[in-house]
Write a protein that binds this DNA or RNA. Structure first.
Length: 596
RNA sequence: GUGGGAGUAGCGAAGCUGGUUAUCGCGCUGGCCUGUCACGCCGGAGAUCGCGGGUUCAAGUCCCGUCUCUCACGCCA
């Protein structure tokens, strides 16, 4: 019996000089096609690589004709013999560059329309077009590499956990709301007309129940859904490694994560991470780097500007200090070939204003003197300013003042980030750090009440527990974030496991007991039956892969395009969809007559 | 929700202060080519300049409206 098509005996990435003389069949796509008249070269591509196929000058008429029919991205089968390329024709750029396959027969398995954009390592087609033709975009080497990276990353995570006594457990996805603070995606229920399921924002409640059940250690590669505006580093639908452990302290969890990332980064990108990651308190991170997710690939530090206020005649700074606000300064370093022009300083100010600063003040240090900007407010105090700031000739002292400490920090943080990028200060590599001692509550001005800064199930640090209600703003939580190159990549905490404490937290967050009972009753109920002390953390797989893939967008490292992941939303109302789906299903189930 | 940017051939772009045939590269197409590998060379087709309106002798270019995309903020960790 003749085969349906010439099925491959080798892939396009594996043939080498040692395979010389082998008769092979390759299957793949026509990546490039170079026709020289009597000689014809075809780069045949599959996910394993690329192999050059030659239609030589001794080819018979049929082979020549078939080869001339080929166009880009035709899916073909080639039968031929592996041969070494002539010495001077070896392509060192290609892993298979020492050989080529001399075609004896070509079969077109499937032709292709003219492409909407070229399949290149990195295409410059616009995002929406690439997403419309996602299947073509994913044929490119750049995209295949990203998807492979993601695969390797998840594989390495699983390998790590399979050596431990963690259980991998899946939690439900048609659930009642998990309160992470974002909007829920809702799914109408057919069985309970008019009612809805929520898709999980995280497996939070369920993993806590698993701890109450005594599973002790659990992990899951979990899909999560949050109905908020997407960004380059944030999707509606995303994947995280979710884990929870019983009878542990914060140190156990941080330690586990450091071990995990050391092993995984070694395996996946062959990078040695330090044994322990730097730690910064939330306050130190904000004060020093102007961000709770600082990029430590460059050191540029923000300093407290209050000492400057004591020696200035600048009333605006004095007023801010009077009101207990924050004054921050940053010394922008001199750099050869880079001028702090008026225009550039205005750009820096713009980036500060986005985060609420009303102005970015500056003065230049030149030969032991201050020049320009606000220097006139430091008449006769040049030496003091230079000694406080440490500024040297060519440096620029940047100052931000704001009544609101957080806004002052964030604004200067934006300036720091821009300087880091523009002055090329950012080193290659991976800088992890822990941010710890987060405040447990934040005041929501719009709603007029306190709310959980992270989520409502995180433990306050023990010294605050008795006096929680007195001033929620000063309560630090047993919360920890893992930050990589300026992105938050994991977030975790030690959980509350006590009904009364949980209810107090709910009350502070303006959730009265009856509402708490209604929404989280099943968790509160579980807490009545000897829940163990426990805690966990959830690293975002998409974002870490994005950073490893050199900060391509998350759209590029996950398998689904934007909006609701796989597709843009449907127009029909749920009821219409349901009927339509049933109709389609019944057509599919009925066998066609001629097939039966 | 707010603000910035963009929409010109299948794709990516150019088109300065309005001026008569809208340019370039890739792709497509016809031909030539025995060693290419982003092959090369010669020719060709392909665009009511997002859409609607306005100003003007004249609009891709200026104005108003509108849609779409995109980035930042808000929101969200």
């Amino acid at each position: 019996m003749e085969e349906a098509f010439m099925k491959r005996t080798a892939n396009c990435g594996e043939l080498r000089a040692k395979d010389e003389g082998k008769e092979v069949i390759l299957n793949g796509w026509v990546h490039r096609d170079r026709n020289h008249g009597a000689l014809h070269f075809i780069n045949l591509r599959d996910r394993y690589g690329m192999t050059q196929v030659v239609v030589d000058d001794d080819a018979d008429a049929e082979l020549v004709k078939r080869a001339s029919e080929l166009k880009l991205e035709y899916c073909i089968a080639v039968k031929g013999k592996v041969r070494k390329r002539p010495e001077s024709m070896v392509n060192k750029e290609m892993p298979t560059g020492e050989i080529e396959v001399k075609a004896e027969k070509i079969e077109i398995l499937s032709p292709s329309d003219t492409l909407p954009f070229m399949i290149e390592d990195e295409t410059n087609a616009k995002e929406d077009l690439r997403l419309k033709y996602r299947f073509l975009d994913l044929r490119s080497k750049g995209m295949q590499d990203r998807i492979r990276l993601r695969h390797e990353f998840i594989k390495a995570i699983r390998q790590f956990f399979y050596k431990t006594d963690f259980y991998e457990i899946e939690t439900p996805t048609l659930i009642r709301s998990t309160p992470e603070g974002a909007r829920d995606f809702l799914v109408p229920s057919r069985i309970y007309p008019g009612k809805f399921f929520a898709l999980p924002q995280s497996p939070q409640l369920y993993k806590q129940l698993l701890m109450v059940s005594g599973f002790d250690k659990y992990f899951q590669i979990a899909r999560c859904y949050r109905d908020e505006d997407p960004r380059g580093d944030r999707q509606l639908e995303f994947t995280q490694l979710d884990l929870e452990m019983s009878f542990v302290t914060r140190e156990d969890i941080l330690d586990l994560m450091e071990k995990l990332f050391r092993e995984v980064f070694k395996k996946v990108v062959n990078v040695e991470l330090p044994e322990h990651f730097k730690r910064l308190s939330y306050h130190d991170a904000m004060n020093t780097y102007g961000s709770d997710k600082p990029d430590l690939r460059f050191s540029l530090e923000i300093k407290d500007g209050l000492p400057l206020v004591d020696i200035t005649s600048f009333q605006i700074l004095k007023d801010i200090k009077e009101k207990n606000g924050a004054v921050k300064f940053l010394v922008a370093p001199k750099k050869e070939g880079f001028d702090y022009t008026r225009k550039y300083l205005a750009e820096l100010e713009e980036s500060a204003k986005i985060y609420g600063a009303s102005a970015l003040y500056f003065m230049k240090a030149e030969d032991g003197k201050l020049q320009g900007g606000i220097s006139k407010f430091f008449e006769g105090k040049n030496d003091e300013v230079l000694s406080i700031t440490g500024a040297k000739t060519g440096d620029v002292i940047l100052v931000i003042a704001h009544e609101n400490w957080k806004k002052a920090c964030n604004s200067m943080g934006a300036v720091r980030s821009k300087l880091g990028a523009d002055l090329n200060l950012i080193k290659k590599g991976f800088e992890f750090c822990w941010i710890i001692d987060f405040p447990l509550f934040e005041y929501n001005e719009d709603e007029g009440h306190w709310e959980a800064a992270h989520h409502m199930f995180s433990m306050p640090q023990s010294e605050y527990i008795e006096t929680l209600e007195e001033d929620p703003g000063r309560v630090k939580g047993d919360l920890y974030d893992l930050v990589l190159n300026g992105y938050e990549v994991a977030s975790g905490s030690i959980r509350i496991h006590d009904v009364e404490l949980q209810k107090r937290i709910f009350r502070i967050c303006n959730i009265p007991d009856d509402m708490a009972e209604e929404r989280f009753g099943f968790l509160l109920n579980a807490f009545r039956f000897s829940p163990p002390p426990h805690g966990g953390i959830a690293p975002g797989i998409d974002r870490i892969c994005m950073i490893i893939a050199d900060q391509s967008s998350i759209k590029e490292v996950i398998a689904y395009p934007k909006n609701t992941a796989a597709m843009s939303p449907m127009d029909e109302s749920p009821a219409e969809v349901e009927q339509k789906q049933l109709d389609e299903l019944s057509i599919m189930i009925k066998p066609k007559k001629d097939e039966a």
